[in-house]
């Protein structure tokens, strides 16, 4: 464990805490894409299949349970909670997210880490996570005003993978000296997708103005 990866995990955890805070305190999920949240449930489940078969550390197991549990809870809130589900921006959250699944799965079959079920699903989850934010970014472009908690959520979510990239560079030079194409390229694509959001988020933060994404 290095400081960059710990910072990455904590940033990821914080993004989920911010999202749950928004949903629970405002009893609203306006501006949040249910499709992105559903993709994250798939990402975590397909990535953590070894949850019960391989024990890495208490921290690793605990975080996996937290990520799976919270992502399922968020989808539950947005789909089933009697108050919150009314606030879901259904007619703006229109990205056909199911179209992202077949290409990621085919790519995982073509370029798996190893040709075993768990490694193919693990590669699938890495590829899917890279594009899972797309429905959310599209929804932000359509939202007239993005509330602070939603903006912070997306910012932290993007920042966590950027910190992971630093962690990979650090590990390459200090530990493994191995090139890990799958997570590295996916992580770079994932972080690049946030590029314009980061630009407008930091600009709005500097100028103390409301965050707005150009349509």
């Amino acid at each position: 464990m290095n400081i960059f990866r710990l910072a990455g995990d904590m940033t990821h955890l914080l993004s989920i805490v911010v999202l749950l805070l928004k949903i629970r305190t405002t009893k609203s999920c306006a501006g949040i894409s249910l499709k992105t949240q559903e993709l994250y449930v798939i990402v975590f489940i397909t990535r953590y299949l070894d949850l019960f078969t391989r024990y890495v550390s208490f921290y690793n197991t605990a975080m996996k349970l937290v990520f799976i549990g919270t992502s399922v809870a968020i989808v539950w809130y947005m789909r089933l909670h009697k108050v919150v589900k009314q606030t879901y921006s259904r007619d703006e959250d229109t990205f056909k997210h199911y179209l992202l699944i077949p290409p990621c799965f085919i790519l995982a079959l073509l370029i798996p880490l190893e040709f075993t079920v768990t490694e193919i699903l693990w590669s699938f989850s890495i590829y899917l996570e890279a594009v899972a934010i797309l429905p959310q970014l599209l929804l932000l472009q359509r939202s007239s005003n993005i509330d602070n908690l939603t903006g912070s959520y997306v910012f932290l979510l993007g920042a966590y993978r950027a910190l992971y990239i630093v962690n990979w560079v650090y590990r390459f030079f200090t530990e493994t000296h191995k090139i890990r194409w799958i997570p590295w390229i996916s992580g770079l694509v994932q972080t690049a997708l946030y590029a314009d959001f980061f630009y407008y988020y930091i600009k709005s933060w500097k100028n103390h103005e409301k965050l707005r994404l150009p349509a």
Binding site: M1, R5, D9, H12, D50, R54, V56, S57, N60, M63, K64, F67, L113, E114, E119, W122, Y164, N167, R171, E175, T176, K178, R180, P183
Partner: peptide, 10 residues
């Protein structure tokens, strides 16, 4: 093998 060092990350 390669898979082991991948798997201690989340």
């Amino acid at each position: 093998t390669v898979t082991t060092d991948l798997k201690d990350e989340l």
